[in-house]
């Protein structure tokens, strides 16, 4: 096997190019007036930090935090019992139900968001067919429901995969030592599934925090998250927006990367080799 080691080296190089270099550039961009599309001399400056006093940006940051935390908490409350329930089913049922949870993810994300948009319209196809009016377009509730529906599977999968692999003998051992069902869950099952919970929380929270199509469509542009700000700062040519500034965008991206790094450190603690991530 030793002879096969060279196969790993190009990967390190590849990851260096696409992870390390852009991170360095983002840091330089954030703390200077360097122009990405016109590289040249630049001065270090903290002028980009001014965006953090803009109401729009502060609101977006707060929104990101609030929406992602609420989404994650609700996904956890719903997702843990679901993962637990699924893990107790006989193998055949378990496989089918799990597959049914993966299947919807193969449907285009954008169209799924648009589907929620259609559902939440005051006069919608749901209204016409079933007589139920769910008028939630442009409301926080609508955005939250959309987010929960979108990210719930990412909470369930990692928790399920840990619970499924858990040695049933450990639960028997706890009962053997006198623990009731409840005590067994609190003292053994839950702590042993904590790795899955950490992965699940991160895999739900980060995408929720950075989503920008979902709040834009279901929130009717009234609810902006940090992703919407980053998009508007970076996508000058596509959006033609006047407020574009890659340097400011870089600074906000760096802020996001801090969350990313924290999550990353947490995940690395519980699951070094990424076994709960797929």
């Amino acid at each position: 096997m030793r002879r096969l080691r060279p196969y790993a080296i190009p990967y390190l190089l590849w990851m260096g190019i696409f992870i390390l270099i852009p991170t360095i550039i983002l840091i330089i961009l954030g703390f200077s007036n360097l122009e990405l599309y016109n590289l040249g001399v630049f001065d270090l400056t903290l002028v980009n930090f001014r965006i953090f006093i803009q109401d729009q940006v502060i609101n977006a940051l707060l929104n990101s935090l609030i929406y992602s935390v609420i989404t994650t908490v609700i996904c956890f409350i719903i997702g843990y019992p679901v993962a637990y329930y699924l893990s107790t089913l006989p193998e055949k049922k378990r496989k089918i139900l799990l597959a049914m949870m993966i299947v919807p993810l193969w449907s285009n994300m954008l169209l799924r968001i648009i589907a929620w948009e259609k559902i939440f319209q005051p006069t919608s196809i749901i209204n016409d067919l079933f007589g139920i009016s769910i008028d939630l377009l442009g409301t926080p509730t609508g955005v939250l429901i959309g987010m929960i529906a979108m990210y719930l599977p990412f909470m369930i999968f990692p928790i399920f995969s840990v619970l499924e692999k858990m040695d049933y003998k450990l639960i028997e051992a706890a009962k053997d030592l006198g623990a009731s069902d409840y005590q067994t869950f609190i003292k053994v099952t839950f702590p042993l599934s904590s790795g899955g919970v950490v992965s699940g929380v991160i895999m739900t929270m980060l995408p929720a925090m950075t989503s920008f199509v979902l709040p834009a469509r279901i929130g009717l542009g009234k609810i902006n998250l940090i992703g919407n700000i980053i998009e508007s700062k970076f996508m000058k040519e596509v959006l033609g927006s006047s407020g574009a500034s890659i340097n400011q965008g870089a600074l906000i991206s760096l802020l996001l990367m801090i969350f990313s790094v924290i999550s990353f450190v947490l995940i690395t603690r519980v699951d070094k080799e990424g076994e709960t991530l797929i």
Binding site: K169, L170, A173, L177, A179, S180, K187, L192
Partner: peptide
């Protein structure tokens, strides 16, 4: 099982991996 005055030493031990030796024994 938790109401019986019987304890088991399991085949592959079934020791709790999230607890240290002391806490395993004190469980």
């Amino acid at each position: 099982p938790n109401q019986r005055e019987i304890n088991t030493c399991f085949q592959k031990y079934a020791l709790f991996p999230h607890l240290n030796v002391y806490d395993n024994i004190a469980f």
